[in-house]
Computed example of a mutant assay.
Amino acid sequence: MTAWIVLPVSLAAFSITGIWIVYAMAVMNHHVCPVENWFYNVTCSEETAKPGFPKTCCTIQDIPLISKCGSYPPESCLFSLIGNMGAFMVVMVCLLRYAQIIEHSHHCWTNTSGLVSGFCNALGLVMVGNFQVDHAKTLHYVGAGVAFPAGLLFVCLQCVLTYRVAITTLDYWMAHMRVALATGSLVSLVLSGIFFIHESFVLQHAAAICEWVFTVVILVFYGTFTYEFGTVTSETMLAGLQRNLPHGAGVILGGGSRGLGGGATKGLKSPGGSSTSTHLNCTPESIAMF
């Protein structure tokens, strides 16, 4: 077990807790209406809600979309922090997962695509968090248009990779669970997009709920990497670095060195366990340096 298991859990726990705190702050500050409210008006001539209580007169501008909850201070400050911190942790998770797949199998376009989609997801999160929808709508929508599809693509690719490196029965159960999460995220994102383009208050509100479901499911998916990250070691990072070094470059390990194409391969650990296996070949233990 390594300390890296904390990273995926921290990403999921910090982000999910943070966005719900942002939502609660927005409701209490009358910036959005509560998610259980389904009744909206074209205009509101009076506001009867008391300070510290939810709004009672709601318009389409008060629909509790995640972005809308983080549009105004003070909750916008926390929303930006969550976006930036979350993006950083997403990048770290994607890098570790990329290196781990290389360590357990081989370099493939699926793994590279997963890394790129994860980075795009992080970039979109930064834009969404720092450009609020009511103040920089175009940039905010560009960020959302990058973050949501990229996040969905990332989880789908990781489902494929999970099956590819699975060894034990528990590994396959994790793959099945991730497919269920990916399916839920796909359905919720599609429904959110369909509902969002309509002018109906009810459908707009349903779009907000689907958006919340999508976000939480994606974050839970990231949290499942705790299962594999218990086996991450320094060799995992070296596997990723070795693959990306220029031809002929290398790292000196221990007292000796071997050529890039030579040397014995090491036994592989189950992606989520501590036992070793020779199920697949991986990169050499050491590589030469000029």
Rank of each mutant, 00 (worst) to 15 (best):
G248S: 10
E235T: 12
W212M: 00
Y172W: 07
F225M: 11
M237T: 12
G184M: 02
G263P: 00
L245N: 04
L189Y: 06
F154Q: 11
V190G: 04
L157P: 02
K266R: 13
R258K: 15
G248L: 06
I218F: 02
S257E: 14
R258A: 13
G193D: 03
T233I: 10
A206G: 02
T226F: 09
E235R: 15
H176W: 13
S200P: 08
S188M: 05
T231K: 08
K266C: 14
Y227T: 01
M237Q: 09
L161C: 06
G230C: 14
H247N: 15
Y163M: 15
T215H: 04
A182E: 01
L189R: 03
G184R: 01
T169C: 15
G230E: 06
L238Q: 13
V217N: 01
S257I: 09
G143Q: 06
L170K: 14
T168H: 03
I252C: 14
C210T: 05
L153V: 14
G151C: 08
A144R: 05
R178T: 01
E228D: 11
G240C: 03
V232R: 02
T215G: 09
P149L: 10
L189T: 04
L161E: 05
N244E: 15
A208R: 00
F214M: 06
H198Q: 11
G254D: 12
Q242Y: 11
L157H: 02
V232K: 04
A180G: 07
A207G: 05
G259K: 12
R243V: 14
L241P: 07
L219K: 05
I194E: 09
Y227A: 04
V155W: 05
I167L: 06
M174Y: 03
V220I: 15
H205E: 05
F221G: 00
V251P: 09
A208K: 00
M177N: 09
Q204V: 06
G262N: 12
L153S: 12
Y227L: 04
V232W: 01
G230M: 10
T169F: 13
G262M: 12
Q242V: 13
G143N: 09
C156P: 07
A166H: 01
C159N: 09
L157E: 01
H205P: 01
F195K: 01
V217K: 00
A175C: 04
R258I: 15
G151F: 02
W212V: 00
E199Q: 13
T226C: 12
V142F: 14
I218N: 04
